[in-house]
């Protein structure tokens, strides 16, 4: 079998003495789409944050191997340069930073990291316009300050646009569906699907099954109270939608 993109082994972590993740195991191979579903407070966003390198979490046990290297040893920016991308649940508005400038700086960091010459303004614009075409992103996304004054839908779309520019190996989508109407949801999902390739992978974190009608996962993991209590195929999401998390927590056979 090919080398996994991500292997999480028995990962335990928390904040200030409170344990949130209590032994997570997860393996993601190239070409796969994994969904992690779970109720509020189950640790979904903590998992995304820890993978992306957000400060403030204590790792109390286990390990995370990304393409053969210890992911937890890397700074957030180095993870991103190595191809880990987090689409934020709440993308941050940065007034005063022009989107083109920001994207060019981000993209050139990756090029530097790979030992490639940096793109100048003209080269970058040519490249970024091609990426925009794939996702049908409006031109003014480039001209406006990063996320500033964007609607909720525009912000999520901008996350996927950034994903298209940075071309990650592992994309983590943290509740990218939250707060979106059905049209915005379809646009975002279509974008994500267009970026799927046999050599990359996607980890979709969501509370609701709705997004998974559009981004079809190969595996669904149910996260409850910091543990993955069940793993199945895409039909597991539908079961959850019908019976709720309660049935799985209390009714199903919960592995220890």
């Amino acid at each position: 079998m090919t080398q996994p993109i991500l292997t999480i082994k028995n990962l335990s972590a928390g904040v200030e003495g409170r344990e949130i993740l209590k032994g997570i195991n997860l393996t993601i191979r190239p070409g796969e789409v994994h969904a992690v579903m779970g109720p509020n407070g189950s640790g979904k966003s903590t998992l995304a944050s820890i993978l992306a390198g957000r400060d403030g979490y204590h790792i109390t046990g286990g390990e995370v191997v990304y393409c053969g290297q210890d992911l937890l040893e890397l700074e957030a920016e180095d993870r991103a340069r190595e191809g880990v991308f987090l689409a934020f649940q709440y993308p941050v508005e940065i007034p005063g930073v022009n989107s083109t400038y920001f994207l060019k700086a981000a993209y050139n960091e990756i090029r530097k990291h790979r030992g490639q010459p940096e793109f100048d303004a003209v080269e970058f614009l040519k490249f970024v316009r091609e990426r925009m075409k794939i996702l049908e992103v409006p031109e003014d996304f480039l001209k406006r300050p990063v996320n500033h004054g964007f609607s909720g839908g525009e912000k999520k779309r901008n996350e996927i646009f950034q994903m298209a520019v940075l071309d990650p190996k592992l994309a983590i989508l943290d509740e990218t569906d939250s707060g979106l109407d059905i049209d915005a949801l379809q646009i975002v999902a279509t974008g994500v699907n267009r970026l799927k390739r046999p050599d990359n992978a996607q980890l979709v974190i969501t509370h609701y099954q709705r997004l998974l009608n559009f981004i079809v996962p190969d595996y669904v993991h149910v996260l409850v109270d910091g543990r993955i209590v069940r793993t199945g195929g895409k039909e597991l999401a539908l079961e959850l939608e019908e019976n709720g998390y309660e049935s799985i927590v209390h009714g199903g056979a919960v592995p220890a």
Binding site: E77, R79, R81, V92, F102, Q162, L166
Partner: peptide, 11 residues
Amino acid sequence: AIFYLRSRCIG
């Protein structure tokens, strides 16, 4: 905002 930029490869 700092974390957001770092997660986009910026040191």
